[in-house]
């Protein structure tokens, strides 16, 4: 059974160890039609409709933002039987927040069992952890190798979910004379955890896994969101980014309001690109993008 996951901060290994197939909701077949109420984030709206399109799949929402948790409410009220709302703590510096995250991972396990999954043994979970580690290592190698081309103005793409229907953004950037040297959207590089450190003797795998996710999640919703800035700061400098493209879904306050802080923190110009449900917007957006890149040559 597939379990659609709407956030990179829900441990995939845990789902797979239960015998179920985790799938990033970013890659699901989203229905771009149908009106959304004014003010509803297009991504959250699409997630709320996912269970209708795939009623037999499980779907894990998170409390990363108000829009998403309310999308979970909407799913529940329209009869979504297989929906689960994972409480992602916004704070990250206290034992209470860590405990909350641990409890949610345990609760997720019970939910997975309710979908037909089985309680994983320690070795089973370790196997999935190793498998995910290998996949991440492969992704990290690709990212470290970078692009073979050094043509174009180096830019960072920072923001929320970037869906396959929106990948033409990369073409638009290149056509305008730029290149993306850092993809800090979801599920881009920002979603790739660092290697799991060796586990302490006697430590339970699920605890080590939960701690790893809890300690390395890098996102805008954290309070304070200093980890995001530290993570960005290192990479923006290392890759010589000359500007930031801020990818914010319509009605996504969490990312949009960061524009001014990003500008100040990194002394880089920021262009806010509003994420449309399909594609990368129209002529106006392309012209803005072109003008922005031209100004950074």
């Amino acid at each position: 059974m597939e379990v659609l996951v709407t956030s990179p901060w829900v441990p995939r290994e845990w789902i797979r160890a239960h015998g179920l197939e985790p799938r990033g909701a970013w890659f699901a077949q989203l229905d771009p039609s149908g009106a959304l109420p004014e003010g509803v984030c297009a991504f959250a709206g699409a997630m709320a409709r996912l269970h209708q399109a795939q009623p037999h799949a499980g779907i894990v929402f998170t409390t990363a933002c108000d829009q998403m948790r309310r999308a979970a409410d909407a799913t529940a009220s329209s009869g979504g039987k297989h929906a689960f709302l994972f409480s992602l703590p916004a704070t990250w510096q206290t034992s209470a927040a860590r405990k909350l995250y641990h409890a949610e991972v345990a609760r997720l396990g019970k939910y997975l069992e309710s979908l037909g999954g089985h309680t994983p043994g320690e070795e089973e979970l370790m196997r999935e952890i190793r498998r995910s580690e290998a996949q991440r290592a492969h992704r990290r190698r690709i990212l470290e190798a970078g692009s073979s081309s050094d043509r174009g103005v180096p830019l960072a793409l920072v923001g929320g979910p970037l869906l396959p229907s929106q990948w033409s953004l990369f073409d638009a950037v290149e056509a305008a004379g730029g290149r993306v040297v850092l993809n800090a959207t979801e599920p881009g590089e920002r979603s790739v955890l660092p290697p799991l450190p060796p586990m302490a003797p006697g430590q339970e795998a699920v605890i080590a896994l939960a701690d790893h996710y809890f300690d390395h999640a890098v996102d805008v919703f954290h309070r304070p969101n200093t980890r995001l800035y530290a993570w960005l700061g290192e990479r923006l400098q290392a890759r010589g980014a000359r500007g930031i493209l801020l990818w914010a879904h319509l009605a996504c306050d969490l990312w949009r309001v960061e524009a001014a802080s990003l500008r100040e923190a990194f002394d880089l110009p920021v262009l806010v690109l509003e994420a449309h449900r399909v594609g990368t917007g129209g002529l106006r957006d392309r012209q803005r993008l072109g003008a922005f890149i031209e100004s950074r040559r």
Binding site: P224, D253, E258
Partner: peptide
């Protein structure tokens, strides 16, 4: 400031 299950706009403004 409480954080977590609060409005996005308030959370974003408080962070700013």
């Amino acid at each position: 400031c409480s954080a977590g299950a609060i409005c996005d706009d308030f959370s974003a403004i408080a962070q700013r």
